[in-house]
Computed example of a mutant assay.
Amino acid sequence: MTDTGGEQTPARVGELLPWSVRGIRTGRPWVVSADPEVLEERWRRLVAAPADERSALFEPSRARTLDSAVPGLPGQRTSTRRLSREPGGQPPLVRVRTRPFDRAWLLADHRLLDQARPELWRADGPHQRYLLVHPEPAPPSVSAELPVDPRVRVHPLHRRPDGKEPNLVPGLLRHLRRAYAAPVTAESVLAWIAAVSAHPGAARDAVPLPRSAATWAEGVALGRRVIELHTFAQGGGLRLPDGRRTFVRQPVDRQPEDLGYDADEETLILGEGRLAPVPPQTWAAETTLREWFADRSAFRGAPSGTLAALGLTAWPQRATTELVELTTTLARLAELLPAQRALAADGGPWFTRADLREAAILPVPPAARRPASVLDRLEEGPEGQYALL
């Protein structure tokens, strides 16, 4: 059959999760750090600086200067006075996602951020999950934290912080429940998307939906395991696929200069430090590991005298703990990769975009692409004024 206008292709990510927005653009690197203590010191240095030095330390941009008047960040308790007049207390430190598998901390203050994406903060909550579509060649990932990367397209799972209004094209859940004669939730749709899309080599913008209820159930179960790993939901209790655990064989007692790997010993090397066992499938994600490591050494390349140049002089124990968690997570994801690829390749036949049009699901109504009006809190406007949104 001839494909006319893509009607015989699978649905696109933006058709299933229609409301999306770009990730946060900070405008200045010093407001993000892998270590919360570094952010505390940077804030103290900014506030204590003489007035004639504070502007240079702040690193003003077209969007933000010390005199910018902006409303408060939704859900965060910060001053809305101009930074040049009244910095106020230290802003909250909020966990964010800087790379597909890298978490950091952010000084959550609207006055510090060029494009904070308030609509994302309004919808953020304990039930929220985000499907992140990264620039090529990185595949999509799932995060429990807001992403700090304006190149990322963010598809929240829910339109409100209470998790009661899914960010799904209207009619999709009803259609799938009828097709599979089984309960289907927003969470199971995200799990399916993670199973077929969140792996190397996946079609970036296509989400094939199976006609088979058995295939759907298999994919949802697989996707839930993928999401647990992407969101680090299993914490420090992870084991390697063969049941072993990664241990610190030799502590990292100072700031390491480089990251390396000994394949024969299955050992990750950080200066004098040694972590083992680290299986080869983890080191296959060498770029991810090196980017993670560079983010914790990034202050070394920052210009002297800037806030971004302020960093830890010693490697913190918590960084080693997070690295063990990351290496184990990457090994577990490598274990799931064959099943993910097989599901995407062999799980058909699929519902096409033409099928979804016939079911009156597509095209996406314009209202579904806009953020919801969240009216459950007062938000402080510039200079202490209040605005009800």
Rank of each mutant, 00 (worst) to 15 (best):
P279T: 03
R153I: 05
P126D: 08
A144S: 14
W121F: 15
K164V: 02
P92H: 07
A203G: 10
S68I: 06
R111C: 05
V31H: 06
L112Q: 09
V142F: 02
G5T: 09
E358K: 14
P382S: 03
P365K: 07
A49F: 05
S373P: 05
R204A: 12
P251T: 07
P316Y: 09
A294N: 09
S79C: 02
A285G: 08
E53T: 05
Y386T: 14
G381V: 02
Q234G: 04
V364C: 04
G72F: 05
A34E: 13
E266H: 15
D3T: 01
V148G: 04
G236Q: 13
P277K: 05
P139T: 00
A63F: 06
L270W: 06
R174L: 15
E286R: 15
G23S: 08
A344M: 00
A48M: 02
P280H: 10
Y261R: 07
L39H: 05
T98I: 14
S141I: 01
W30F: 11
E40A: 14
A34I: 04
P251V: 12
E228H: 12
T329V: 13
D355I: 08
P280A: 14
H175G: 00
L173P: 00
L107F: 08
P200G: 13
D262L: 15
Q255F: 13
R204Y: 05
P139K: 03
R151W: 09
L172Q: 02
P87L: 08
F232H: 12
P36T: 10
T320W: 07
A345W: 01
Y180R: 10
R97L: 06
L326E: 07
S20K: 12
A334K: 01
G311L: 01
T26F: 02
